[in-house]
């Protein structure tokens, strides 16, 4: 059995802030058949904090996010949002929680059949909290916030570039002024300059909304730029939590190898031929 370094998870933010975290994962387990993906994930995200989960492919980053979003049910463990255990909620209560959440998907996941502004205003149009004209006005305002002009509003997603799709996805994620925003690999598939533009947009929009943010990525430049705190996921467990400064000084061999992007170290990639 391989010994992993002791995680500093959770307790750090609990001790520091002394208040209830916005989001808390307690011993979350998830397996697909015989393959154990999450092996007891413990994590706290404090209110207003931007936490980035880093980790290699297949370490369970996306599964963690899907469990929080309710797209997958954990086999064991609990996930709390504002102190409420998500597993105990009724569908209506879950919808209420979802209305406080914004999500930027890796592929942007824009609806092909709807125009850009209808995508951005989707929640507003479905909930019928505002008129159609008002929803369009808000959508155009959110598009401007992510650096897109109103000519893009009438275009369909198929006609957009990768970077523009990410921006529209971000505008949709912030359309309802959510309390928590999730970012799934926000810079994957983008060139370095566009990646930096998206990172800047994430930082500015999260700050503007005063939201709590949870990002999963394996892009270290992105992680360093947007994170208040970074957590490393390895073999389905959080093995390290710390600030960007702590990340640079850490002696944890797993984190050091991942940050350096080295093939040599305790993390062994399975290469099947």
């Amino acid at each position: 059995m391989k010994l992993l370094p002791k995680a500093k998870h959770g307790m750090v933010s609990r001790k520091q802030s002394g208040e209830m975290p916005k989001l808390r994962l307690m011993g979350v387990y998830k397996a697909f058949g015989k393959k154990k993906v999450l092996n007891g994930v413990d994590l706290d995200v404090a209110k207003g904090e931007t936490l980035v989960i880093i980790g290699g492919s297949g370490t369970g980053k996306s599964v963690t996010l899907k469990c929080i979003l309710g797209l997958l049910q954990p086999d064991k463990g609990g996930i709390e949002f504002d102190g409420q255990n998500l597993a105990d909620l009724t569908q209506a209560e879950r919808d209420e929680v979802n209305s406080k959440i914004g999500m930027l998907f890796q592929s942007a996941a824009l609806f092909d059949s709807l125009s850009v502004w209808e995508n951005v205003a989707f929640s507003l149009l479905q909930n019928k909290t505002v008129s159609k004209a008002e929803a369009k006005r808000i959508a155009i305002q959110k598009l401007a916030q992510v650096g897109l002009n109103k000519d893009v509003a009438e275009v369909y997603p198929a006609d957009l570039s990768g970077g523009m799709k990410k921006r529209v996805g971000l505008a949709r994620a912030i359309a309802t002024n959510p309390e928590v925003i999730f970012f799934d690999e926000p810079t994957t598939g983008l060139d370095p300059i566009m990646s930096d533009v998206i990172n800047d947009l994430i930082v500015s929009t999260v700050k503007q909304l005063g939201a709590t943010a949870l990002t999963i990525t394996h892009d270290m430049n992105s992680a360093k730029k947007i994170a208040d705190k970074i957590a490393m996921l390895y073999e389905g467990k959080i093995i390290w939590v710390g600030t960007v400064k702590e990340l640079e000084k850490t002696k944890n061999p797993y984190v050091r190898q991942f940050v350096a992007g080295s093939a040599n170290g305790p993390i062994k990639m399975e290469v099947k031929v």
Binding site: K66, L69, G70, L71, D95, N98, S99, I101, G102, M103, F105, Q106, S107, A109, L110, F111, D112, F122, S123, Q126, N127, R172
Partner: peptide, 15 residues
């Protein structure tokens, strides 16, 4: 829609 995560997106948009 499933493979491009649009169905997951619907759920996160409370639909």
């Amino acid at each position: 829609m499933r493979v491009t995560e649009q169905i997951d997106a619907l759920t996160t948009l409370s639909t």
